[in-house]
Amino acid sequence: MTKANIREQEAYSAFLEDFRPKRPTLRNIVVAFLTGGLICTAGQGVLSCILSRGMPEKQAYVLTSSIMVFAGAFLTGLGVYDKLGSFAGMGAALPITGFANSVVSPAMEYKHEGFVLGVGARMFQVAGPVIVYATLTATIVSIIKLYVF
């Protein structure tokens, strides 16, 4: 009998509480705020630059996203973005540059498994779920918006 029963598991889990180091939550939040803020400010810079060249607002937003995706992808290729991510957590992961990082990192990593089943299949390992749930939620939201309200 070495697989503990539920009561023993709960007792052990309670016992562990005293030993688990707490995550540095405050530090993490502050760093995420600053990093995420800076990335968005950079995005704003790109946006202003495009707008000042007379591009319509809607297209300018789209182009800004593309440029930020490129930046995130490039920094991942250079091996910089994973360090930023481990430093800033969601501050680096939540902006669209982090989305690009989640696409490029598995694509590079699985190159040795070939360009079809490696790069192609694994590219959306992390980003795939994001797209799936974004699409599902957006569809449901739109249907509700159109037919319920």
Binding site: V62, S66, F74, G77, V103, V104, A107, M123, A127, A138
Partner: peptide, 25 residues
């Protein structure tokens, strides 16, 4: 839906693939 996010997704696939070809982890 996808018309609106097309640029983001296309850039991700395009640049993602490009970087995977150009760089190694």
């Amino acid at each position: 839906g996808f018309k609106a996010v097309s640029a983001g997704l296309l850039s991700a696939v395009l640049f993602g693939y490009l970087m995977a070809v150009l760089f190694n982890p």
